[in-house]
Design a protein around this nucleic acid. Structure first.
Lengths: 352, 352
DNA sequence: CGCATTGACAAAAACCTTTTTGTCAAAGTA
DNA sequence: TACTTTGACAAAAAGGTTTTTGTCAATGCG
């Protein structure tokens, strides 16, 4: 079932068979057809290992998938969505996706995983996700001269290929919406600031607040891991504090679900007594009670862009500095937010 | 940076270098150490492509990930959790996971994806998930003589390696719980019956009902895709019908979320007027309102078992027929279900 | 006619390992 | 001494492609 047995069967040389099947010149149409026919009859498939060895290409792209920070240790749903888009594009070009799941949330370990993937030449290209402010993986991939596309941006002195959603605009819109509903104390439950996206989301929030002449209160702009439990505990802290916010903007839907639970526990009616919004448009956001106002950031589309960019890079059709794609976001208004409630009677701050 | 340049550098033969680095005999301790040292100095890493070609092993395992049936086209969270467990085990053994996302829910296409993975010899072994009642992929993998482990069972005349959760017991427990709370009209919102797990869940439901002398009403045992929207529409149908159920057992948390939304829409208080339970213990299930009674089926653990089983199979340490692992389930009682409400006044069925 | 070009194929090199077989001296045994 | 064993290394084959170079006859041109 190797090319040599096929060549022997056809009474032709190996090179002719190879050239025929790979669509090169130097082989007559009749012979080509004869080879094609016999090859499919006999069920011949070129050994990808040998092909990889010869060409030096693996026809695979590597991706490290961040795990959710708690629960079933599954892959973060943003990245599983992204993977869907990437895989769709790659598959069409006969590339494979080698997925490594990062079970522990340890940046050093993530870098080591990338290093392993690159250095052991398992892959031709890399997808670098959940970029940090100064992401060492970008320098690493550049040094290894391996094509890569990041999902999210980073601080880099040199150009690199990136695809990202418009985090800044998303949080500008979300904050603006709250302000327009009369809220003045708008809290931000953000992710850890070493992630670049968290910086951008904060910037969007700050821009909207500044634009309306509202001050930024560091006591109500908190940061934590992107999980329900952190949303719950951070929100509890917010509500217990003096002068609690009337609106809470959460960096992810998961944070928002946790925050909603904390609000319910305090007896607050979500959408009336307090406004909450999320980010991600997760399927649960449409079916929770009340349905969550959120932002659709089009992960599948982003994944497709990443896949396409990667292929262009691999084919030499584009240089990294040409690949900068900022996916617009779509605000999804639902019922978890509303008009700012009237100020409580003055003795309300006695409540524990 | 190949073995030949390393050998030249050391003034040794290629074979000696190879044997030294691979821990074979036939090389003196001093020489071995010298080679080791120089190899790490020079940063030599054996080319995995050449190694694969020679050994005929790819050191990779293939897995097809079912996409969620709607929304962001992401990977089903059960399978992303499973992937986490599998990857954890494989990684420790220096195996890689090649993940293919099945974006369209088309069984034929899924089979084709497996065929491609196997036939193009991209992988040494396969994980076959979301097994169907008569799953063609099992026969296919056996014919290709490629080791595989299924997640879920199927009808097969010959033994095969499987790992599964105890679906039957889970739905027996869930149903029993409803019956013990006084419910007699217990609905089942199940997945499509061509999935083996749906059959098993139905069996558990039926066993509990029979055991308590309750009859099975086909009008309230419905089947649909595993999504919020199907949960919503199926539940609407249930509530509109004559003699609606007082309890709804859903095959997944997603179905349950949809069902909850439909119940709220009808003005029913979940946990009081109607009881709902899910399956999966998704993170949202703990934070929705009311928190959802569900079952934890330990996907990460299942993934680890699959990974371990695969490695044993690949190393010849076990035969497929020895690998049958049924993961026990854990019921997670929360507040979405409760005592059966008293029967409504007789004119209630006039309500639209 | 003589020479260059082209078409169609074959031979061999290269890709980088691992594994099998081979060499040769030193040591052990009868 | 003659023969076998063993230790330490080298040479070469094998794995299945792709690509470069080579061959040889037929064709085209002046």
């Amino acid at each position: 079932m190797s090319i040599v047995s096929l060549a022997r069967d056809l009474d032709l040389s190996i090179s002719t068979v190879s050239r025929a099947l790979n669509g090169y010149k130097d082989v007559s149409p009749e012979t080509r057809e004869r080879i094609r026919k016999r090859a499919s009859e006999i069920g011949y498939r070129p050994n990808p290992g040998a092909r990889r060895l010869k060409s030096g290409k693996t026809c695979a792209v590597g991706m490290i998938l961040p795990a959710v920070s708690e629960g079933n240790h599954g892959v973060d749903s943003v990245y599983s969505g992204l993977m869907g888009g990437v895989a769709t594009e790659l598959e069409a070009a006969d590339y494979h996706l080698i997925a490594t799941v990062q079970t522990r949330t340890d940046p050093d370990r993530e870098t080591a995983l990338y290093e392993n993937l690159v250095h052991a030449s398992w892959v031709d290209a890399l997808i670098i996700g959940r970029t940090r402010v100064n992401d060492p993986r970008v320098a690493l991939a550049r040094k290894a001269r391996i094509p890569f596309v990041t999902y999210g941006r980073t601080n880099s002195s040199e150009p690199y290929a990136w695809v990202d959603t418009d985090n800044e605009q998303a949080f500008y819109l979300l904050t603006k919406r709250q302000i327009e509903s009369g809220h003045t104390r708008v809290a931000l439950l953000n992710g850890p600031l070493h992630y670049y996206f968290a910086i951008l989301r904060q910037q969007g929030y700050v821009r909207a607040m500044m634009e309306s002449g509202l001050s930024i209160d560091p006591l109500i702009t908190l940061n934590g891991e992107l999980s329900e439990s952190h949303g719950y505990s951070l929100c509890r802290n917010l509500l217990v504090g003096a002068n609690p916010p009337t609106s809470i903007i959460c960096a992810t839907d998961a944070l928002a679900f946790g925050a909603m639970a904390a609000c319910r526990e305090r007896g607050l009616k979500i959408g009336l007594d307090i406004s909450i919004s999320g980010y991600g448009n997760s399927s649960a956001s449409a079916y929770c009670d009340p349905p969550l106002t959120t932002v659709d950031h089009q992960v599948f589309e982003n994944g497709r862009h990443i896949g396409q960019s990667l292929l262009r890079l691999l084919r030499g059709q584009a240089q990294p500095e040409e690949i900068h794609y900022l996916e617009p976001v779509v605000l999804v208004p639902r019922q978890s937010d509303g008009q700012c409630p009237p100020p409580p009677p003055s003795n309300s701050n006695l409540s524990r």
